[in-house]
Write a protein that binds this DNA or RNA. Structure first.
Length: 826
RNA sequence: GCGAAAGUGGCGGAACUGGUAUACGCGCUAGACUUAGGAUCUAGUCCCGAGCGAUCGGGUUGGGGGUUCGAGUCCCCCCUUUCGCACCA
């Protein structure tokens, strides 16, 4: 025989849930705040495979569990549907991105349905449709008004394959996050959002996010990269300007024996103006500039530098120090210039050695407290430094740093300064498939925002996709040519579109007003439902989406539209599913491009959606990365079949039987375990508990050791507890048991704590910490009675070997340990 | 280099606050039903030793040390792996 008829069962229940609109929530009339559960929005570029299933199946299991626990839950879903995959598909296959995207969405909705996933589709949003992206434009205009959006010429990351610029966050190790192509630097005029103005608030907010994984928080802290130190001015010896450097070690300023500027530094041209080898240096600068980021910042890349010929004054030491140019100083961090302290910085030391520059020790190895006004030998001297590592751990006390800053400040040589690694968010994209940026360029009026009443600026359908560089939008005359909203003269539209992360930075609020054509959302509704209680998604958005969403939430907060600053109270990162990839010969994240994605279709056809669900949840801890195993799936299938079969035999159970209490206890233990596990997202152990419960029930039915009424109660509980994981088969069995309501509307089984305790049990007995026997005792017994029972055990007596018991350790309900001697080392 | 997490059978992994290590599943072995099975069911399955046997003894959570009556769990040192950041001054 094969399995139960999963196909007809699943089809039947999927239809029923759809008719009942099982997940739909009436926002307006709900009395209490519902628990808002949300998954990362699905980028509609890829067909769903079993790797994706983990996110959605986990979310659905949680949703069903919450409902049964009596927590009304809102479970919306939307489509993050702008972006490059659609446009690339258009170029490669000649399908319009809009048609391709909307078609994908239709297919994916069908796949969700096959998995038995209940979403509240009445809240569905599709970011590529004008009724959604209109509000991106509205938000942009408001940010433009308040100075949070601005346009600026700047060196930016350009992906030569995607033919567009990228945000810093989308550059991973110098390569495009999406396609892996090495990113080039280009000087372009682009739109930015001023996220740097929120750096401190974004950082501080992390401390309050107790429901977020530490990993994500530390990644964000790292990304923001706040460092505290000082700016110090070094006036040019020739007079005129100063070079300002940033340092976190102002206490080492006496040891600054030279300065290093990034070759891109604005003063460089002036410094080398009179240099005899000016041409050679200029050529070298050009070479460094053109070096891709990935190479320049790479670990192995050699330090290269040139002496500019100019000198600057180190106020602290009273000496003139040479100004060098080198590739190891980055133009976009701090001030693009450093004071080199070779005695206390390994990079400076390496460079000083290479170029034969002086090294001066500021700290004597034993001397930690340094006063800037009394610095002298031996604290300050020509050190015999072999390796900078010798002075690791010689970080100054915070007071020392403060003393130096105050001293520099008092002399007018420097001041306290905080810098960040975080850059402003570059949102311009030179691509078609995104939200048009709503501004117009007029020769007379300059940059003119499109009036709110003219929104949305619709993306035209009629464009040509050639795959050549240049935005297809800019070749669409009827889009580009317009009139200036201010002076009505001929003008042209901005053709850059927005980064798709703008769409997803506030979409969770739109779920609460998906059909509102009057405003972005209703602040009153939002105050009742948001923030999101539980957000589920992969780690890949730890700094992209999740940082942007936190930023935009603060922007909306400052606009008075939302009352909170953190959009997501709890975050759960499920691990990815991996599989062996023929192409690379390695186990890798399941994905279509790697050729190791497994389609759920064949699996569902053969063993059913419940099998996929149970297996996916059983595979391993949800937060860990797990490898898909084709063969192990059948274990989940067998489990479901065994439930099905035992349910058919339940009628044969006797009216009375001896071991009733044992089965009843097992039932309560299982309720306890499954409830606890689901509260902690431990779906893998919850499934294991249900398997054990089934094993117990099957034995009881086979051996006729439990009464029919107890077996039926056990089966009912099993079916209820199973429902979040395997909704179809559980609904069918529930109906077969004669219940008329859907399991979703039943109450989660309740544990009777008293049932967890046993009157009699096997007490573990140890002698000197080693397990020797198990003795049957009653829970009510006193320590004295237990001791007597333990000493009655022949095995225990044998192992005691006549020795005296020095200590009797008794842990009620668990064990007894007889300690005979304390060994004293000689 | 800096930061974080983790090392448990042939494999994925259990073990709540220190208290029976190896639950549950895969795989494997034997058997049953079968024309056959990569279907299903039953039994067994951490390692070493003794015994025909039910059992008995010893060992085991990357390595070493410590705390404790008792350590996979806590502390210290070392090794390894994974992840994140990285010429960030």
């Amino acid at each position: 025989m094969s399995g139960y008829e999963h196909k007809s069962i699943e089809g039947k229940w999927q239809e029923r849930w759809e008719k009942q609109r099982s997940a739909e929530v009436d926002l307006k009339n709900a009395r209490e705040k519902y628990y808002m559960l949300m998954m990362f929005p699905y980028p509609s570029g890829d067909r769903l495979h079993v790797g994706h299933g983990r996110n959605y199946i986990l979310g659905d299991a949680l949703y069903r569990y919450l409902r049964m626990r009596g927590r009304r839950a809102l479970n919306p879903m939307g489509w993050d549907s702008f972006g490059l995959p659609a446009e690339n598909a258009a170029i490669q296959r000649g399908i319009h991105p809009r048609d391709w995207t909307l078609d994908n969405i239709r297919v994916m909705k069908k796949q969700f349905k096959r998995w038995g996933i209940l979403y509240d589709w009445s809240k569905e949003i599709t970011s590529c449709l004008p009724d959604y992206y209109k509000w991106n434009q509205w938000l942009f205009l408001r940010m433009l008004q308040s100075g949070l959006a601005y346009k600026r010429r700047a060196p930016v990351n350009w992906c030569p394959s995607c033919l567009t610029v990228l945000a810093n966050e989308q550059v991973i190790e110098g390569a495009c996050e999406r396609c892996g192509t090495a990113v080039e630097q280009r000087e372009l005029e682009q739109w930015f959002l001023r996220i740097t103005g929120f750096a401190d608030r974004l950082l501080e907010g992390l401390d309050g996010l107790s429901g977020w994984p530490e990993k994500v928080k530390s990644m964000q802290r790292n990304w923001i990269g706040r460092s505290v130190g000082a700016e110090i001015d070094f006036p040019l010896a020739q007079g005129g300007e100063s070079i300002t450097v940033f340092t976190t070690r102002p206490d080492t300023v006496h040891g600054a024996t030279f300065l290093v500027l990034a070759p891109e530094h604005p003063l460089v041209a002036k410094l080398i103006a009179d240099h005899p080898q000016r041409a050679e240096i200029a050529a070298w600068i050009e070479k460094v500039r053109k070096t891709p980021r990935i190479e320049r910042e790479g670990e192995s890349s050699a330090k290269e530098g040139r002496f500019s010929g100019a000198m600057a004054m180190n106020h602290a030491s009273g000496e003139a120090v040479p100004i060098w140019l080198a590739n190891y100083v980055l133009p976009d961090y701090g001030s693009g210039a450093i004071m080199a302290v070779p005695a206390h910085d390994s990079r400076d030391l390496a460079f000083a050695r290479q170029e034969g520059l002086p090294v001066r020790l500021v700290y004597h190895p034993d001397d930690r407290a340094v006063d800037p006004t009394t610095l002298a030998e031996p604290v300050l001297g020509e050190g015999r430094i072999r390796n900078c590592g010798e002075f690791d751990g010689l970080l100054p006390a915070p007071e020392t740093t403060q003393r130096f800053i105050a001293w520099l400040d008092a002399n007018g040589w420097g001041r306290a300064k905080v810098t960040y690694r975080l850059r402003d968010w570059l949102i311009s994209r030179q691509r078609y498939w995104g939200t048009p940026i709503p501004v117009v360029y007029c020769e007379a009026c300059g940059v003119v925002p499109v009036p709110e009443s003219d929104l949305p600026v619709e993306l035209p359908y009629d464009v040509e996709f050639t795959g050549r560089e240049g935005n297809p939008l800019s070749r669409n005359a009827s889009f580009v040519n317009t009139t200036c909203p201010r002076c009505q003269a001929a003008a042209r539209r901005e053709t850059d579109t927005m980064d798709t992360f703008v769409d997803s930075s506030w979409y969770y609020l739109r779920y609460l007003a998906a059909r509102d054509s009057q405003r972005i959302f209703d602040p009153e509704t939002v105050s009742r439902w948001a923030p999101v209680d539980q957000y589920i998604g992969g780690i890949e958005h730890a700094i992209l989406h999740l940082l942007y969403a936190r930023f935009i939430c603060r922007v909306l907060h400052d606009m008075g539209l939302v009352s909170f600053e953190e959009p997501f109270v709890n975050l759960f990162n499920q691990g990815m599913i991996t599989n062996f990839a023929e192409k690379t010969g390695r186990v890798e994240k399941m994905s279509k491009s790697k050729g190791n994605a497994i389609s759920p279709d064949a699996l569902i056809e053969e063993m059913g959606a419940d099998t996929e669900r149970v297996y996916t949840l059983f595979l391993g801890p949800p937060e860990d990365e797990v490898e898909w195993s084709e063969e192990a799936v059948s274990g989940a299938y067998r489990f479901l079949n065994r439930i099905w079969r035992v349910a058919q035999r339940i009628a044969d159970c006797p009216p009375t039987a001896p071991s009733d209490e044992a089965l009843e206890r097992l039932r309560h233990v299982t309720i306890h375990r499954v409830t606890r596990d689901l509260d902690r997202f431990k779906f893998n152990t919850a499934v294991a508990a249900l398997m054990e419960f089934l094993n117990g029930l099957t034995r009881a039915v086979d051996d006729k050791t439990a009464s029919k009424i107890r077996c039926e109660a056990a089966l009912d509980t099993l079916v209820q507890l199973l429902h979040p994981m395997a909704p179809h088969i559980s609904e069918e069995l529930w109906e077969m048991r004669g219940h008329s309501e859907s399991l979703l509307d039943t109450d989660w089984p309740v544990v009777d704590e008293k049932r967890l305790l046993r009157e009699q049990f096997q007490l573990v007995v140890q002698v000197d910490g080693k397990l020797r026997d198990r003795v049957e005792v009653e829970s009510s017994w006193s320590e004295k009675e237990v001791r007597a029972a333990v000493l009655a055990s022949p095995k225990v007596v044998e192992h005691l070997g006549g020795r005296e018991i020095e200590k009797f350790v008794f842990i009620p309900g668990r064990l007894a340990n007889l300690v005979t001697r304390k060994e004293h080392p000689v």
